[in-house]
């Protein structure tokens, strides 16, 4: 991406560097949301259905972690993945993999906390029915998650919004390497520091447009599913 062109020109001319950046942004954020969903949804559902001492505390901490500053998450993963850190031998620092890990750390609390709330509300409605059907604990989790699936789409979107918007974590663990770990948000940060504010704003608009499209697609899928399943 050369600074001589406006963001609109880059989009219209199909600038390959721009598309690589967009592709990486989506790949990293969607992968992180997927990983966070695989951890956060079962975790949230289990938390909704189980009662143990300290449960309230866990819920409060989880809710608080929804506001975890990205740069703190980034720094934690950085120290973990640094060659001098405990997982340094993996050689993951300054790679897209590290960015996925950092964003997973950011998104998991959001998905887990919102899933807990969603599933717990549904559980109040389903509790007697599932007990009467003799459904065991694992079956309950599976049933509630499946029946809450349309609400969980919104939960995943909240997670995706967080991942797609943040720059603090991925710039620390990814290094904003051109053509390798540069995403929409880190590119915007870079163009801002180069003083190319119009290009930075333009890229910002492209990012917003992409996020809007993804939300629209997910929303459409949700509505279609609800219409079909009730």
């Amino acid at each position: 991406m050369t600074g001589e062109m406006s963001a609109l020109q880059l989009v219209l001319t199909g600038d390959p560097a721009l598309y690589a950046v967009v592709r990486l942004s989506l790949l990293v954020s969607l992968s992180a949301v997927l990983c966070a969903a695989l951890i956060g949804i079962p975790l949230g559902a289990l938390l909704a259905l189980t009662r143990f001492p300290g449960r309230e505390g866990v819920i409060v901490v989880l809710n608080a972690l929804m506001g975890l500053p990205p740069v703190v998450a980034g720094l934690a993963i950085y120290l973990l993945l640094s060659r001098s850190g405990p997982l340094g031998t993996l050689g993951l620092l300054f790679t897209p993999g590290a960015m996925v890990i950092a964003q997973t750390l950011l998104v998991t609390p959001i998905i887990a906390a919102l899933t807990r709330q969603t599933v717990e509300d549904l559980w109040l409605e389903y509790r007697d029915e599932l007990a009467a059907l003799g459904v065991g604990p694992l079956g309950r989790v599976a049933t509630l998650v499946w029946d809450a699936r349309f609400s969980l789409v919104t939960v995943l979107l909240a997670g995706f919004g967080r991942a797609a918007a943040e720059v603090g974590a991925i710039i620390v663990v990814g290094g904003n390497i051109e053509g390798f770990t540069r995403t929409m948000t880190t590119a915007i940060a870079l163009e801002t520091s180069k003083g190319d504010l119009p290009l930075a704003i333009g890229l910002g608009l492209v990012l917003i447009a992409i996020v809007v499209v993804i939300n629209a697609l997910a929303w459409g899928a949700r509505r279609a599913g609800e219409r079909y399943v009730g």
């Binding site: 007697d128 029915e129 499946w146 029946d147 699936r149 009730g230």
Partner: peptide
């Protein structure tokens, strides 16, 4: 409870 069943006054339909 395998051989018992109940229908509640307002049964909950699964989605």
């Amino acid at each position: 409870p395998a051989r018992r069943a109940i229908v509640f006054q307002r049964p909950v339909m699964l989605r």
